[in-house]
């Protein structure tokens, strides 16, 4: 088991001393916040801590779109596919991303530069279509603009 991951997971788990199952989602969120994704090792530690099976934890974690099971890239791309973004051409942006980066949603590029995912709505509908890269929301995007922005990331 990866010692680094085990240590961070343990320090996160220490913040939830009660073995209370209702904290599971919060624990998963805290672990992911630290490690950027949920590794099998981390899920093992949570399972021991809460005394619930791994499959139960996987059942909960896979239910929610927030949880990731692959290590993310250096930059995270979140394409908004809310209704407003869709009618303003969000789908075209997703096509560009999948063809330019050669990955589909939920995956990370081979060089570890970008990971790609879709979100249901970022709540910036009036600026549609939007793409969020790391913590920056790029508004009123177009296919051409998006390509230029991607080139700007290292």
């Amino acid at each position: 088991m990866d010692v680094k991951i085990a240590n961070t997971t343990q320090s996160t788990l220490n913040k939830f001393p009660q073995k209370d199952k209702s904290n599971l989602i919060q624990i998963l969120q805290a672990v992911q916040e630290k490690d950027d994704f949920l590794s099998p090792e981390a899920i093992g530690s949570i399972s021991k801590h809460l005394r619930v099976s791994r499959s139960y934890i996987f059942g909960v974690a896979t239910f929610y779109s927030q949880f990731k099971f692959n290590p993310p890239g250096r930059h995270s791309i979140r394409i908004c596919l809310g209704t407003a973004c869709h009618v303003q051409g969000g789908d075209f942006l997703l096509n560009v991303l999948t063809s330019e980066l050669d990955i589909t949603t939920g995956e990370t590029t081979e060089d570890g530069k970008f990971d790609l995912d879709r979100v249901a709505c970022l709540g910036c509908c009036a600026l549609a279509p939007v793409v969020k890269i790391d913590n920056t929301i790029h508004s009123r995007m177009s296919v051409v603009k998006l390509k230029e922005i991607l080139d700007g990331y290292e």
Binding site: L81, T83, H86, A120, C121, G123
Partner: peptide, 12 residues
């Protein structure tokens, strides 16, 4: 949990 894509009343 404002989940409707295309709505942001509660966020604002």
């Amino acid at each position: 949990d404002e989940g409707d894509p295309g709505a942001f009343m509660n966020r604002s």
